[in-house]
Design a protein around this nucleic acid. Structure first.
Lengths: 277, 277
DNA sequence: CAGTGGTCTAGACCACACT
DNA sequence: GTGTGGTCTAGACCACTGC
């Protein structure tokens, strides 16, 4: 047995099963140990990794329904409860979404009626005033070679191909956000200003559809800064005006960084919302 | 049965139990329904509420070990698995802390070696440079009557008694944070500048020890603002300098607001760290 | 050693959604 | 009705902690 945990073939079980359907681990799971990983982990963690691997490999795409817990249990030769626990964790990580009566689905940035899942800027007036969809204007989209600092954060080498996108978001006619976005050239081959401009949904939904890149988590660093001439002009404020600087590093599956983004937010009538616990 | 869920006394069970130890719900749980709450909830949610009630009532204090899962299961007349699921959720909410082999404990802001659990300001240099403990200087601690806006956020009436505390935090000799804190007078009776000044640990740990008030979650609103004369003087920056404004509303058990806090952070060499998922 | 949380299984039944 | 996730139980055994 690959794990040190209980296993129902133990002869001490009061209602001993015949050995026939003994839940031996399948090759997939056993290879986990054979792969040179000396660390034993609980079965459900191994199942979690296997599901993650399928997500990563694109076996199930964003929005797809994955097999039922029962099917997965059969496939991995474990009990439904074990699969359930694996899926539970993937669901709390927002990689999967459970819908009672329907099935379990791969999370997606599209068709989530909360338009921008990673955007935390909300109107101050609390806040049934649903801020209408942002108006977006792409300012430029160009190729360049990675500067050292950007390369470091994206796990690339200095000089590697990169896309840079610059855009402004506005709410009800007033500019609110100026963003600079850096993307690895290899993963986003063929990105153009036209593609970006013609798209209507969230940018991360486009990344899923066009490039098969799904952003699953991100880390942000916030600072208060003074607007420089460039930012002031694009956001319609005077030079020196306080802006909220939001530097975001976004990751795909398995903690691979795939986007660096620097936003400058106007916060006169909006705020960055955060919940602590 | 108070819930519409399965129950092992069903006669169809292959190894039918005698009715004697039928897991009927205890008075506590049953009263949940009798209390006029028409909404049925899963058993483990009811157990969760009961545990929460005990926490709130102070039956187990911060740092205490609560009864074992087995004991609680017996007390509530449910299976260990159901108690386990209730505790699982309370643990992910950071109300309880599980320690294998030892027990389950009430979470506390004291003796958590992560000194300030709600403070997200980190040094930019990433960041084994453990920023030494903050130097704290209380500027004032006074009683006042609640202005309308503060009263609204703290669920008080305008004019109710309030404490206001003003302090400055510094790291390695440089002022970094200016905070204004408002606390309901009723819950913090006897708070003095001396108490606050002589304390060494996190303020929230003092609140637990002195006033039995445990902060469990908080909501923050961030903006970029320009330093006014007062803030500039206390933080050692020039007027107009960009500062990160952090307005925090902190809650005890059951979503009762107990503190309003407005911080102004200098972010030249530090940043507010946030993780999205 | 005993006591605690952690993992795993097997099986029953409920609630929900679609057909 | 059928199939899905959601709840609940009972019991076994493992892993860690401290006496």
């Amino acid at each position: 047995m690959a794990t040190p945990h209980a296993n129902p073939t133990d002869s001490t079980a009061p209602d001993a099963h015949i050995g026939v359907d003994a839940p031996l681990l399948p090759a997939d799971v056993a290879s986990n140990a054979a792969l040179g990983a000396p660390a034993f982990s609980p079965l459900y963690q191994q199942i979690k990794s296997l599901i993650l691997r399928s997500l990563q490999a694109g076996e199930w795409k964003p929005g797809d329904m994955i097999p039922s817990e029962f099917d997965l249990a059969a496939r991995f030769r474990v009990s439904q409860g074990t699969v359930r626990k694996a899926i539970d964790e993937l669901a709390t990580d927002n990689l999967l979404v459970r819908r009672q009566g329907k099935g379990t689905f791969v999370a997606t940035h599209a068709e989530q009626h909360i338009q921008y899942r990673f955007l935390r800027l909300l109107p101050d007036a609390s806040s049934l005033e649903a801020q209408g969809p942002a108006e977006r204007r792409i300012i430029e989209c160009r190729r360049l070679r990675a500067p050292a600092e950007v390369a470091r954060q994206l796990d690339l080498r200095t000089g590697d191909a990169l896309f840079q996108v610059k855009r402004v978001l506005a709410f009800s006619g007033t500019q609110a956000i100026l963003e600079d976005i850096w993307l690895p050239g290899a993963a986003f081959k063929g990105l153009t200003l036209e593609t970006l401009s013609s798209d209507k949904g969230p940018m991360y939904a486009l990344f899923e559809a066009q490039f098969g890149v799904r952003m699953v988590r991100a880390v942000e660093k916030l600072k208060a800064v003074a607007a420089d001439a460039d930012a002031a002009a694009l956001l319609g404020v005077e030079v020196g005006h306080p802006l909220l600087s939001v530097e975001r590093l976004a990751y795909t599956y398995n903690d691979v960084p795939m986007e660096l983004r620097r936003g400058l937010y106007r916060t006169e009538t909006r705020h960055y919302h955060n919940e602590l616990s």
